[in-house]
Amino acid sequence: MVERKRYDNRLGFWGWLGGGRWGFERYVYTLHRVTGLGLLGYFLLHILLTTSRAFGEPAWTAWMDRVSGPVFRYVFEPLVFAAFVIHGMNGIRLILVELGFAVGKPEDPVYPYRTSLNKQRPLLVAVMIAAGVVLAIGGVDFFGMGH
């Protein structure tokens, strides 16, 4: 067979954003990735930073002073908290979905098709509402009460 020139039409990273019909789950999938990466980055720093408490009070207090400015208190910390709440609540849904417990039983495809996405969507809405409630409580703590 003659070797023919082809055009590599792979979407690449653009495909993480494009290519589909953009159901609600696609946005949540992206959000889950972004929050996960953010949490991991924070967590690795967090391990190193909290190690200072092994070296006694002065080291601990010095580090805590360095990371307690308004940028940390009102931007980074709330972001980490929000990322955890969203990632965690959505994670509960993903555990149920990915272990096949929330996707429903296979059914005959009759147009208009209803898929497993429809089956798990109430759960998705529920965990997002739960996340919203926890975020509201967190908001009171972060921004509402004086320090």
Partner: peptide, 30 residues
């Protein structure tokens, strides 16, 4: 490598729902 973005089931012209099959497959494996 499936994380349930759900797009396969959204675009399937026959209502096959591959996303459901993959989650059930993972359940069998686990």
């Amino acid at each position: 490598r499936c994380h349930y973005a759900g797009e396969c089931s959204n675009v399937c012209p026959k209502g096959v729902d591959p996303a459901r099959a993959i989650q059930l497959l993972k359940r069998e494996f686990v």
